[in-house]
């Protein structure tokens, strides 16, 4: 019984050894064939690889085509820039002294409807102008698609929150001012 088992084992081991030898041989054949193909490729048509590389480069350059949105974003950035010139000059001469004034003075000043309207316009237009700018910067440097989308979304969210806070805050200040 045990003898038979041993013989069985032995023959299995022999088969395995044979298989390995056969595999090695096959592997060797394959490698040789691959080398031959490689040599044949470069010998028969050396320009083929060059032409394929050019084709790849051309496809990479054309990619998915033009998005058709470049001019639109660019125009909004320039329009907001134009609007910001007078607003920024007004802001520089009038607001900066208010920033460190006593809070009650500042609140009263902001509660005057004209001041509130001008500073509201300045902040909202600046936020629109700034989101485009930040987006361009992020597109320039953040090349991973996930991080790019996430970071631009974060910028948009912060800008939207700031815009909302500005509008609500100014409304409160105006009503307090008129009421008081």
């Amino acid at each position: 019984m045990s003898d038979a088992k041993n013989t069985d084992k032995k023959s299995k081991a022999d088969d395995a050894a044979k298989d390995t030898a056969k595999n090695d041989d096959q592997q060797h054949q394959n490698d040789k064939q691959k080398d031959e193909i490689k040599v044949a490729r470069t010998q028969t048509d050396p320009s083929l690889l060059t032409r394929l590389a050019q084709r790849t480069a051309y496809r990479r350059a054309t990619a998915l085509g033009a998005s058709g949105t470049g001019a639109a974003i660019w125009t909004v950035q320039r329009m907001t820039a134009l609007a910001l010139i007078p607003l920024a000059l007004w802001f520089l001469v009038s607001i900066l002294s208010m920033l460190h004034a006593p809070a009650t003075t500042a609140a009263a000043w902001l509660g005057a409807p004209w001041n509130a309207a001008l500073i509201g316009a300045f902040v909202l237009v600046a936020l629109r102008h700034g989101t485009i700018g930040f987006r361009v910067i992020l597109e320039d440097y953040v090349h991973s698609e996930g991080w790019r989308v996430a970071s631009i979304a974060l910028v948009y969210a912060i800008a939207a929150l700031s815009a909302l806070a500005t509008v609500v805050g100014l409304a409160v200040l105006i009503f307090t001012h008129i009421g008081g």
Partner: peptide, 14 residues
């Protein structure tokens, strides 16, 4: 112009 109207193809020029 259509082929150029793209944030990357043309408007990466700063």
């Amino acid at each position: 112009l259509d082929a150029l109207d793209d944030p990357f193809r043309l408007y990466r020029c700063h």
